[in-house]
Amino acid sequence: MSMQKQQEPQTTGHVWDGDLQEYNNPLPNWWLIGFYLTVIFAIGYWFLYPAWPIAGTYTKGFATITYTNDKGVTKTVHWNSRALLMEETNAAVAKQKPYYDKIGSMTPEQIARDPDMNSFVISAGKSLFSNNCAACHQQGGVGKMGFAPNLTDDDWLYGGHFDQIQQTITLGRHGYMPPFKGVLNDQQMTELADYVLSFTKVPVNPESAKAGDALFHSETAACYYCHGANAKGRTVIGSANLTDNIWLWANVPAAKTVADKEDAIKHVITNGLHKGVMPTWGGRLSPDQIKLLTVYVHDLGGGQ
């Protein structure tokens, strides 16, 4: 360095306005060589991969990629990341295939009892559930009040046995409750709400609850037709069990006062329900995928 200081500064030799000169600070060679190498690399890249846009098209490059599309046709095209994704997806599917082959020949219960298969269900089911079911049932199957049932508790509207869950997923469900607006007056509805709340030890007026009990089993309201004489619901038609702590349509747990809880239930009785719709998955998912989801959902709620 000290030697450099003694030197006159190097200039490019250009002079403007008589005395304005430009210092010459050449780049280090290692830097220049590195720069030229990146240029050479870039040229090689242009020849191999899609690079330059030209009018409505682009240079495709000489590199090719072979993949099999979803119709089973194997194609060789110029290199592109979409085909790469297809190829990688196929590889992943091929890895899952031995498991799916086994699922085809096993009953859901056998799958749930086999440690290896059950582990596969927990891992593969998580992504299958997230892609297809979580839009309504939420991530982890926790459900949403007033929208989609919680799958992690032990209350099953249409039954929690393997075959019932499998049927629910395959065919879908449509829950319906008629509106009682105009059929029952406000007091009758309050009595019915009190009767329902009395099952879970909510401090309601016992007289009113008793009247509700009578009304529930009478032909006037005829609640027992669907909800059963014991009010525990019927899995065949998916009518709710009214005696437990699980609520889907009337947000009773969030209501603070008894009056609010009554109102939540009365709202459902007044307007009925026509929105408990679960779509049919039979045509969208393969029978093996549905069987896998059956085991997964069964495991979520601890099963029945």
Binding site: I122, Q139, G140, V142, N150, T152, D153, D154, D155, T200, N241, D244, N245, I246, P253, G302
Partner: peptide
């Protein structure tokens, strides 16, 4: 512990946690 849901209320009022 499975954190989604962190816990769930059962039909009889019990609380269930699940663990992986």
């Amino acid at each position: 512990q499975i954190r989604q849901p962190l816990y769930v209320t059962m039909s009889n009022g019990d609380i269930r946690d699940r663990y992986e």
